[in-house]
């Protein structure tokens, strides 16, 4: 019985070590830095910049009266 319990304890401990810390770090990472996760994701950035462009549609960034070399 004892060896069986020992083996079960070891398996449980391994499962704990393998799974739990990852969950902890993931949750910490997720709560810590949305800037990083978003700004390193081109797909997300494309979606957001399109959203921004849509909101600013028709607003020129610079004057059309600019003429000649600056």
């Amino acid at each position: 019985m004892k060896p069986l319990m020992l083996a079960a304890s070891i398996v449980c401990a391994l499962i704990f070590l393998l799974i739990v810390p990852q969950n902890i770090s993931l949750s910490v990472g997720a709560s810590e830095n949305h800037c990083f996760t978003c700004h390193t994701n081109p797909r997300k950035l494309i979606q957001i910049t399109r959203e921004i462009a849509k909101a600013h549609k028709g607003k020129p960034a610079k004057s059309s009266e600019i003429a000649g070399e600056g």
């Binding site: 610079k62 059309s64 009266e65 600019i66 003429a67 000649g68």
Partner: peptide, 20 residues
């Protein structure tokens, strides 16, 4: 470069114009 003139257009955006 020659004569530069600066101002703001109807929308309030800054512009410059150089004459060449």
């Amino acid at each position: 470069c020659y004569a530069c003139h600066v101002g703001r257009d109807e929308q309030g955006l800054a512009y410059y114009k150089t004459t060449g």
